[in-house]
């Protein structure tokens, strides 16, 4: 087993927020002046309150039929097995924007649903952007598979608990799981990245 490693970004502004993606999350085709002002304010706000952090570990894996064995968990999933075909190793990572984004969202949610909705979309774009950053850092020239998360296809959401607990994501990143398998902070992601042999 390879050692665990954490990544923090204190310079969040290096992460890009994709306006087109935000508009897609909002299911809107246009941004007039008023909405754009809210968008700009939310972008400014998320850069202030986000504290992107990730933790990752590399595992030797064994794929047999539909079972993927990570050592710390065995996953019965056709889709994940297909994704990890030809892989002997995989990264598991967890990433989050931190609880500050949740607090800001909760506050906006009490004052203005427009601002809360736009803020949430902007934060989603930022966590995606951070995951891309982490992903790139991990594969670093290796040939890898697209990242795959618990909850995709038949990769059961219940494995979220195994992944988070193996990475000690509560202690290292402050990611917690509720009884109904929701991650807090909301803008958190876990994923598996297969490395081609």
């Amino acid at each position: 087993m390879i050692d665990i490693c954490t990544i923090s970004l204190t310079e969040t502004a290096t992460l890009k927020i994709d306006k087109k993606e935000v508009m897609r999350y909002l299911r809107t085709k246009e941004m007039d002046e008023g909405l754009n002002a809210i968008y700009e304010a939310c972008v400014k706000r998320i850069y202030e309150v986000a504290s992107p952090k990730a933790v990752y570990k590399k595992f030797n894996i064994n794929v047999l039929d539909n079972i993927v064995d990570f050592g710390f968990m065995k996953v019965n999933s056709k889709d994940l097995a297909k994704n990890l075909k030809d892989c002997n190793e995989a990264y598991a990572f967890a990433a989050t924007l931190g609880i500050g984004a949740d607090r800001t969202f909760d506050r906006l949610n009490r004052v203005s649903q427009t601002e809360a909705t736009v803020f949430s979309a902007v934060a989603s774009s930022l966590i995606e952007s951070f995951c891309d950053y982490v992903n790139e850092r991990l594969i670093d020239g290796l040939s890898s598979k697209p990242r795959f998360s618990a909850g995709y296809g038949d990769f059961s959401l219940e494995h979220q608990r195994d992944i988070l607990s193996n990475l000690e994501a509560d202690k290292r990143l402050g990611i917690f799981l509720t009884e109904s398998y929701m991650m807090v902070p909301v803008k958190s992601v876990t994923a598996i990245i297969g490395i081609r042999s």
């Binding site: 299911r27 008023g34 909405l35 809210i38 649903q113 427009t114 736009v118």
Partner: peptide, 8 residues
């Protein structure tokens, strides 16, 4: 129009 405009 779309959700954000509806909310505004």
């Amino acid at each position: 129009t779309f959700l954000p405009q509806l909310l505004m």
